[in-house]
Measured scan of single mutants.
Amino acid sequence: MSSSSWLLLSLVAVTAAQSTIEEQAKTFLDKFNHEAEDLFYQSSLASWNYNTNITEENVQNMNNAGDKWSAFLKEQSTLAQMYPLQEIQNLTVKLQLQALQQNGSSVLSEDKSKRLNTILNTMSTIYSTGKVCNPDNPQECLLLEPGLNEIMANSLDYNERLWAWESWRSEVGKQLRPLYEEYVVLKNEMARANHYEDYGDYWRGDYEVNGVDGYDYSRGQLIEDVEHTFEEIKPLYEHLHAYVRAKLMNAYPSYISPIGCLPAHLLGDMWGRFWTNLYSLTVPFGQKPNIDVTDAMVDQAWDAQRIFKEAEKFFVSVGLPNMTQGFWENSMLTDPGNVQKAVCHPTAWDLGKGDFRILMCTKVTMDDFLTAHHEMGHIQYDMAYAAQPFLLRNGANEGFHEAVGEIMSLSAATPKHLKSIGLLSPDFQEDNETEINFLLKQALTIVGTLPFTYMLEKWRWMVFKGEIPKDQWMKKWWEMKREIVGVVEPVPHDETYCDPASLFHVSNDYSF
């Protein structure tokens, strides 16, 4: 037999072997998808029940369902290793196997995995149920939502704001400190077992692309791009910072340095994350009609249902689908009040099986009107990829998912749209002054938050990498806050605090 014939037969044999492996992989994935749908849905439903009704029974049910899901994933991840990716030609099959071969938290021992889940659930519970009591009246206690958040959004009393700011960190942050220390250790162990340098590197892996249509993007490039983007917006932020400082000097004349940092408790919310609520103090042309339409919403008797129905109309107007019937029947759109304790931070849920929901303790404000559009943007994205195989139902990356939500809320905030839905009067006219007011309001929300987020994530990356010793977490946190964000702590904090974890995203294990 000629050498060319042998070569042809060899190629046929290799192709047949690849085809056999690929067919086996497809069969394996079909079985996995069928089983995963049910187990993931049960786990998601148990998590939803806990988040909307925080009880010991629900946390136990959530843990049990989560353990079943984790055990299943660990088993299936091991089985998926049997299919070598280099022998799979079908890109859809390869991407699913690649996702499943990534072990995630299931790489930890059973004891450590359970401990990590306990830590995460405990931190979430402390954050959502933590109360601050009035020292003069111990029976008068406030949760973060709505009590403390209400103070931080609306109060102009310097000392009341300081009390709310400090009490939240003292009551909740200190409880979270030992848990967060354990969390860092276990998450790093999980990341390294998955061949990442640390948990920050694991997060950045979400943005990594290897040879898809000839395109590559590394975790290191992400760090470079983040640094570059921050340097680009820094001059604009510094101008905004100086303008806000001048306006705060008028409101709090004896508390603000004309050349120094801004006190952290005066920036519009509990964390200084969004400066939106400073608009009334900083509006350049106050004689113009108010483009913050909160009062109009209240006057027109809007409620949470109306807010979300208007958001749905907005999405339908640009060619996107209505929310499902189940969305309206199962979402929690208002604070249950004293009936039950719930996690009030707005979140969009894709539970699986076409079950999409939003959890939000909606208030009738323009801020929540825009947040509703943001969260519904997440749901629209979830619905758009719902037909994909189970392992591919995700956003391109976390940042893109947020961008989908944010672009919709930005569009909904324009005076033209607000006028079209009757929240600005029919005779409202846009001119240079109203446009400047609008742009300032947008800058308070968007530009003001960028250094906050950059600095927070930089601190977390450094902590996970071990570049900040545990006994210097708070020292470095406030050094970076002053240097990068231009914000100063109103009272000193020692290493018993854990100020970063006083933010939902940190205590609940979300990256930005």
Results as ranks from 00 to 15, higher is better:
residue 25 A to Q: 00
residue 21 I to R: 00
residue 31 K to M: 06
residue 83 Y to F: 05
residue 26 K to Y: 04
residue 37 E to Q: 04
residue 76 Q to E: 11
residue 50 Y to S: 03
residue 93 V to K: 04
residue 95 L to M: 13
residue 71 A to T: 13
residue 76 Q to I: 15
residue 31 K to F: 14
residue 79 L to Q: 08
residue 79 L to P: 15
residue 40 F to S: 12
residue 26 K to R: 14
residue 48 W to D: 00
residue 54 I to F: 06
residue 102 Q to I: 11
residue 90 N to G: 15
residue 76 Q to G: 02
residue 50 Y to G: 03
residue 40 F to M: 14
residue 40 F to Y: 09
residue 56 E to D: 08
residue 27 T to H: 15
residue 93 V to M: 04
residue 69 W to A: 14
residue 60 Q to F: 11
residue 35 E to R: 02
residue 75 E to N: 14
residue 74 K to N: 11
residue 31 K to L: 06
residue 98 Q to E: 13
residue 68 K to Q: 06
residue 20 T to F: 02
residue 63 N to S: 05
residue 21 I to F: 03
residue 92 T to D: 15
residue 28 F to L: 02
residue 31 K to V: 01
residue 45 L to P: 02
residue 24 Q to D: 00
residue 60 Q to K: 14
residue 63 N to C: 11
residue 22 E to L: 08
residue 92 T to E: 15
residue 33 N to K: 03
residue 19 S to E: 03
residue 29 L to P: 00
residue 49 N to Q: 06
residue 23 E to T: 14
residue 33 N to Y: 03
residue 96 Q to H: 04
residue 71 A to W: 11
residue 63 N to H: 07
residue 23 E to V: 10
residue 27 T to G: 01
residue 73 L to N: 10
residue 96 Q to P: 14
residue 41 Y to C: 02
residue 29 L to R: 00
residue 37 E to T: 04
residue 62 M to Q: 06
residue 72 F to H: 14
residue 34 H to D: 01
residue 65 A to P: 05
residue 92 T to M: 15
residue 71 A to C: 09
residue 102 Q to C: 10
residue 68 K to L: 04
residue 62 M to P: 02
residue 82 M to V: 02
residue 49 N to S: 10
residue 48 W to K: 00
residue 98 Q to N: 11
residue 50 Y to N: 02
residue 68 K to C: 07
residue 71 A to P: 01
residue 76 Q to Y: 15
residue 96 Q to W: 03
residue 34 H to E: 03
residue 26 K to T: 14
residue 75 E to S: 15
residue 91 L to G: 14
residue 75 E to K: 15
residue 74 K to W: 11
residue 25 A to I: 14
residue 40 F to K: 15
residue 27 T to A: 15
residue 69 W to K: 15
residue 48 W to H: 00
residue 45 L to E: 00
residue 50 Y to Q: 04
residue 41 Y to G: 00
residue 95 L to F: 08
residue 38 D to C: 00
residue 98 Q to V: 14
residue 20 T to E: 08
residue 50 Y to I: 02
residue 73 L to H: 07
residue 89 Q to T: 13
residue 23 E to K: 14
residue 102 Q to D: 11
residue 59 V to D: 13
residue 74 K to V: 09
residue 82 M to Q: 02
residue 56 E to R: 07
residue 91 L to A: 14
residue 54 I to Q: 07
residue 42 Q to K: 15
residue 89 Q to W: 11
residue 73 L to Y: 04
residue 84 P to W: 06
residue 102 Q to H: 12
residue 48 W to Y: 00
residue 64 N to A: 14
residue 95 L to T: 10
residue 84 P to V: 02
residue 65 A to Q: 09
residue 95 L to K: 13
residue 24 Q to N: 00
residue 92 T to S: 14
residue 22 E to V: 04
residue 31 K to T: 00
residue 41 Y to I: 00
residue 34 H to Y: 02
residue 19 S to T: 14
residue 64 N to V: 11
residue 29 L to G: 00
residue 68 K to M: 04
residue 92 T to H: 15
residue 79 L to S: 10
residue 48 W to S: 00
residue 64 N to Y: 13
residue 49 N to E: 14
residue 63 N to L: 13
residue 56 E to Q: 09
residue 64 N to Q: 12
residue 39 L to H: 14
residue 67 D to R: 13
residue 65 A to S: 02
residue 68 K to V: 06
residue 79 L to M: 14
residue 56 E to W: 10
residue 73 L to Q: 10
residue 72 F to L: 07
residue 60 Q to C: 11
residue 57 E to Y: 05
residue 93 V to Y: 03
residue 40 F to P: 02
residue 21 I to Q: 04
residue 23 E to Q: 14
residue 51 N to V: 05
residue 69 W to I: 15
residue 24 Q to E: 05
residue 56 E to A: 12
residue 39 L to N: 13
residue 61 N to F: 13
residue 72 F to I: 04
residue 74 K to R: 11
residue 91 L to N: 14
residue 31 K to I: 02
residue 71 A to N: 08
residue 25 A to T: 15
residue 83 Y to E: 00
residue 98 Q to C: 14
residue 96 Q to N: 01
residue 24 Q to V: 01
residue 38 D to E: 04
residue 92 T to L: 15
residue 67 D to P: 02
residue 74 K to E: 07
residue 73 L to K: 11
residue 60 Q to Y: 12
residue 35 E to D: 15
residue 79 L to F: 15
residue 67 D to F: 11
residue 65 A to G: 03
residue 92 T to N: 15
residue 26 K to D: 15
residue 60 Q to E: 12
residue 64 N to G: 10
residue 19 S to V: 14
residue 50 Y to A: 06
residue 34 H to R: 04
residue 92 T to C: 15
residue 59 V to S: 12
residue 89 Q to C: 14
residue 79 L to G: 05
residue 89 Q to R: 14
residue 84 P to A: 08
residue 20 T to N: 07
residue 89 Q to D: 15
residue 73 L to I: 09
residue 57 E to L: 05
residue 63 N to R: 14
residue 89 Q to N: 14
residue 98 Q to A: 10
residue 89 Q to M: 08
residue 92 T to K: 15
residue 45 L to A: 01
residue 41 Y to K: 00
residue 29 L to I: 02
residue 57 E to K: 06
residue 74 K to H: 12
residue 25 A to W: 00
residue 98 Q to P: 01
residue 74 K to C: 07
residue 96 Q to K: 04
residue 96 Q to S: 03
residue 73 L to S: 06
residue 90 N to K: 15
residue 90 N to E: 15
residue 79 L to I: 15
residue 69 W to Q: 13
residue 96 Q to E: 08
residue 23 E to I: 06
residue 40 F to N: 14
residue 38 D to F: 00
residue 69 W to S: 13
residue 95 L to A: 13
residue 42 Q to Y: 00
residue 39 L to W: 09
residue 64 N to F: 11
residue 27 T to L: 15
residue 35 E to F: 01
residue 92 T to W: 15
residue 69 W to T: 15
residue 49 N to C: 02
residue 22 E to P: 03
residue 41 Y to N: 02
residue 95 L to C: 08
residue 74 K to A: 10
residue 45 L to D: 02
residue 67 D to I: 13
residue 72 F to C: 03
residue 22 E to Q: 13
residue 68 K to F: 04
residue 65 A to W: 15
residue 20 T to A: 10
residue 62 M to T: 05
residue 57 E to F: 05
residue 50 Y to L: 03
residue 71 A to R: 13
residue 74 K to Q: 09
residue 26 K to E: 13
residue 30 D to K: 01
residue 68 K to S: 05
residue 69 W to D: 04
residue 21 I to N: 04
residue 38 D to T: 01
residue 96 Q to D: 02
residue 56 E to N: 08
residue 56 E to V: 10
residue 35 E to S: 00
residue 60 Q to I: 13
residue 92 T to R: 15
residue 95 L to I: 07
residue 23 E to N: 14
residue 72 F to S: 04
residue 46 A to D: 05
residue 65 A to H: 12
residue 51 N to A: 10
residue 95 L to G: 09
residue 37 E to K: 03
residue 82 M to E: 01
residue 74 K to D: 06
residue 62 M to A: 10
residue 23 E to L: 12
residue 65 A to C: 08
residue 30 D to A: 02
residue 38 D to R: 00
residue 21 I to W: 01
residue 20 T to M: 04
residue 67 D to L: 13
residue 90 N to I: 15
residue 82 M to R: 14
residue 56 E to M: 12
residue 48 W to P: 00
residue 72 F to T: 04
residue 27 T to P: 13
residue 102 Q to P: 14
residue 57 E to N: 02
